[in-house]
Amino acid sequence: MSAPATTLPPARLTGLMPFLRRYPLVAIAGVILAAIVLAAVFAPLMGTRDPTSMSPLQRLRPPSDAYWLGTDHLGRDVWSRLVFGARVSVIVGLAVAALSVGLGLVIGLVAGYIRWLDAIVMRIMDGLMAIPGILLAIALVSVSGASLWTVIIAIMVPEIPRVVRLVRSVVLTVREEPYVEAAVSVGTKLPLILIRHILPNCIPPLIVQATYVAASAMLTEAILSFLGAGTPPIIPSWGNMVAEGRLLFQIQPWNLLWPGIALAVTILSVNVLGDGLRDRLDPKLAKRM
């Protein structure tokens, strides 16, 4: 983690603006994401109507002044559902990223530093990693019943091992550093060593990891809803919209395409932002990817 200064790319030595000029895609991704988050927060002010109100007489209408993106098979406004659906994706992305990084950090720090715990914790993580994430999430949702919180927890659980492994690998390198040995030798207490000396080394790769977790969480939420094991159908989410849109896909493909495009653009932006952060915060990892 402590790369000699000579190997750092010039971007790190200069400010944010030159970095964004060098990576214009990152800037664009940031703007798109900001727009999506703002739209999600201020959804009622975005020219929307009630995303759940049905008007059977207005079913499957093409885009018009009243319905910007047309209506779905129940006569609901697609634009409103799209904007309110952003809320679900944003909430799931942020919540899963924050929770899995938080929990993974604690588990990884402790496992990496306390050797006897390491073997046990890592076996549990190996077991969790061996179960395909989507299947584990499906199973968790199907036993606990569908709600936004169940979905968040179900997506979070399979993400934890990845974070734990990352944190542990950092801890294992850092714990041999002279400054940690020095802290140990002067009798610094364990929690203090972990928080003051080891934690700061984990932060840059974790920020990068958090963006990837957020992207994959949004993707998994959409897949779960699409399969009927995700966000309850009554909540407008992009995954639910795709699931409903597929019924009449051959007649009116747009109802499936809009949420699909929204998902792809959002996840793409998060991934591009993650790559940008990686290049800036974690040059060693950037070289390996």
């Binding site: 992207a215 993707l219 959409a222 897949i223 699409f226 795709v242 597929r246 896909f249 493909p253 499936l256 395409l257 699909g260 495009i261 998902l263 792809a264 996840i267 793409l268 991934n271 591009v272 790559d275």
Partner: peptide, 16 residues
């Protein structure tokens, strides 16, 4: 990056 970002079902329906 596109491969990691476009959901499988979106790709599927696009191809169909």
């Amino acid at each position: 990056v596109l491969g990691f970002s476009v959901p499988v079902f979106v790709m599927g329906y696009f191809l169909i």
